[in-house]
Nucleic acid binder design. Structure first.
Lengths: 198, 198
DNA sequence: GTCTATAGAAAGATAGAC
DNA sequence: GTCTATCTTTCTATAGAC
């Protein structure tokens, strides 16, 4: 089967997702037109509909892809020491969030633009990730190396604290990523009352 | 001067702001039409323009009003003990944020929809609030009752952690506000290595 | 101050040619 | 797979009557 002249399906698909993610994050889902996405990709607006059913589906797939990649990237070892696992989580979450700040921003800001069914799916995936951190905290309390009043609130507090890095981090700023990881790890250690005070 | 029939300027103005804030927070600035705001208020779309120059100005004024009220509501006593001031800040920030969760969400999500001049104004007001917390942390370090690697990052981390409460808090949920304040105050104490371990 | 009416621009999505 | 063209809807903002 001969390829249609001008067809570049192998690269157009990913490009659409990349540009949509970038534009949605910078201007907001509702503020971005399909024409605008198409222009960034270098096609006409009509061509987008060969790749996505509609704009809503495009948003949902971006968010679902992000959450699935987040879950796949986080590899915990439940047999490890809770403090080591927590340190790994802290550094992982910061690095992953900074690497994908557009998707992170989207996944917080545009949940409201999903219809109920799609919203429930993303919330479920997010809950699974939160559960991963909460398991570490519970194990830490069980092992006597952390003191936590409420593991669910501590989970939400830590994730919010870590994700917040995306709000102010700028490449080439005062602190590099490793140093930021060090500092946040110390903050997290204190918050969960880890014994080994650095 | 006789009032025009049907005129209710005293209540329409505040109503417009209230409904705009609510709708912008729930659906996003770009997704909300002036017609929709007008319908919630109970007037026709054209009437809105007697109160605001345009949609952009309406958003900006909501954000500026929120930041000014936040700054006005926070009353610090620089002569007080740093730990007392920090506890007061933690509880204040949570309560204020929960009381105005729509405005809080807006002030994070819709900065990107402000033109550069308006954006700079809001960023300046936010910076002033951040400085207020940072001053407490610096005083705490100076007084030897806190141990902090980097006061600016600790400031950003604490504010993100506290503001995050708005992401999951629901009225009538498992924990009441005071208990939430207790738990977050313990987390904050630990993060800044306050000596009086509870 | 509020209404009706509308100008003018832009949106999402589809049809059919190539 | 992509293009051009277009249908249909909706939007912001303004004009003029009351």
């Amino acid at each position: 089967m001969a390829r249609t002249q001008g067809s570049r399906a192998d690269i157009t698909g990913p490009l659409i997702r990349e540009q949509a993610r970038r534009l949605f994050a910078r201007q907001g889902y509702a503020a971005v037109s399909m024409r605008q996405i198409a222009a960034e990709v270098g096609v006409q607006a009509g061509a987008l509909y060969a790749y996505t059913k509609d704009k809503q589906t495009l948003l949902f797939e971006l968010l679902e892809e992000h959450m699935l990649e987040l879950l796949a990237a986080w590899q915990d070892d439940p047999a490890g020491m809770p403090l080591d696992r927590l340190e790994k989580f802290v550094r992982f979450h910061i690095d992953f969030s900074l690497d994908r700040s557009d998707a992170v921003f989207l996944s917080y800001m545009e949940l409201r633009n999903l219809d109920p069914e799609n919203h429930a799916r993303i919330a479920e995936l997010r809950g699974r990730y939160e559960d991963a951190l909460e398991a570490i905290l519970r194990d830490g309390v069980g092992a006597g190396v952390m003191k936590i009043d409420d593991s669910r609130l501590a989970t939400m507090a830590l994730i919010a604290m870590l994700t917040g890095v995306t709000n102010w981090y700028r490449e080439g700023g005062r602190l590099d990523r490793e140093r930021i990881g060090d500092i946040y790890w110390r903050l997290a250690q204190g918050a969960v009352r880890a014994e080994n005070d650095g």
